[in-house]
């Protein structure tokens, strides 16, 4: 068990190294000269050269990569080209909204999708099954921003005049300033963001539950007269947990991608907005920092998922 965990943790190191190399080289070959952008409208070529030297943009690839990697390992992601602030500080400022959004989305999705999937599997072929599967397929097919606007129009602006415009339409309130406003601000974005995720989880839950429910031990449990609830939520769900958790981990990437769009739609000052702004302005250090951080998060989540397996299914030993 311990050896497995160690091996699994160590295995993430080469992956992260490749991500780092990739992220770095991607931006190394980028067109557009950040030095010229910083120098501004009226600068002379000499000024531009001076800035390029100061940024170290004239050194060879490997030197720059190693220097950069060393800085990263020491927790220094460089300084933003446009704001002159350390990237770690800019990421730090924006991490709370994004994490909050993800936590709420994740919770919301799990809480709705798993029961939905279980019920759909239990009542296979019933209207509730068909309905939930239609909804989940639709969840895959409508772009996040369309859902976001639709929700904001209905529940914040009360565009259909149903008297339900309770929610703030944009922005973020830090959790220190009150849990309720924090939650209210994030609810609509979480639903918009979570729909795809919910669809994904509901489907995998239904599929694995169908499989599990046809297994012998479930029939045995039924035969022994175990209650319906206990069969569904204790015996079956526990055994269906591994594929569900896997999908939760893999789907996390969708969540990150969706956050970029959702934060733009709902004006949430998180990492997604930072990414979009940075890319539009060619702010290399920020792009590198954010992609690296999100990738790290993603790797971490999947590491967690792998370790969870051993909890759900003690037989797993790779």
């Amino acid at each position: 068990m311990f050896a497995y965990i160690c091996r699994r943790v160590l295995a993430t190191i080469p992956v992260m190294a490749i991500v780092a190399l990739f992220v770095f080289s991607l931006l190394y070959i980028a067109p557009g000269d950040p030095a010229a952008i910083i120098a501004g409208d009226q600068a002379s070529p000499a000024d531009v050269d001076r800035i390029r030297m100061a940024l170290g943009l004239d050194r060879p690839f490997l030197v720059r990569f190693l220097a950069w990697l060393w800085d990263v390992l020491r927790g220094d992601l460089g300084v933003s080209i446009f704001t002159n602030l350390p990237v770690t500080k800019m990421i730090g400022q924006r991490i709370q909204p994004t994490l909050s959004l993800m936590v709420i989305t994740l919770t919301l999705s799990l809480v709705t999708a798993i029961p939905l999937g279980v019920v759909a599997a239990w009542k296979q072929g019933s209207w509730i099954d068909r309905f939930s599967m239609i909804i989940s397929t639709a969840g895959f097919s409508v772009p996040v921003f369309v859902i976001g606007y639709l929700l904001a129009y209905t529940f914040a602006l009360d565009g259909f005049e149903l008297g339900i415009g309770f929610f703030p339409v944009q922005g973020y309130v830090p959790i220190e300033q009150g849990v309720v406003p924090w939650f209210m601000n994030l609810l609509l974005p979480s639903i918009a963001l979570g729909l795809v995720y919910m669809a994904l989880i509901a489907r995998i839950t239904r599929a694995t539950m169908l499989e599990v429910l046809s297994q012998d031990y479930v029939r045995t449990a039924r035969a022994k007269g175990a209650g319906q609830h206990s069969i569904l939520f204790v015996h079956a769900l526990k055994n269906a947990a591994v594929p569900i958790v896997t999908v939760v981990g893999i789907g996390f990437a969708t969540l990150i991608g969706g956050a970029v769009v959702t934060e733009s739609v709902f004006a949430i000052p998180g990492l997604g907005r930072l990414t979009v702004d940075a890319i539009l302005r060619r702010d290399y250090p920020i792009i590198q920092g954010v992609v690296l951080m999100f990738s790290f998060l993603y790797v971490l989540v999947n590491l967690g998922v792998d370790l969870l397996y051993t909890l759900f299914d003690p037989r797993i030993r790779y």
């Binding site: 080469p14 992956v15 992260m16 190294a17 490749i18 991500v19 190399l21 990739f22 992220v23 991607l26 931006l27 990437a253 969708t254 990150i256 991608g257 969706g258 970029v260 990414t275 979009v276 890319i279 792009i287 954010v290 992609v291 999100f294 990738s295 993603y298 790797v299």
Partner: peptide, 13 residues
């Protein structure tokens, strides 16, 4: 490594 970079971020970059 490639899969560890969320796909939309990769595409945007």
């Amino acid at each position: 490594g490639l899969m560890s970079i969320p796909s939309i971020l990769l595409a945007i970059a």
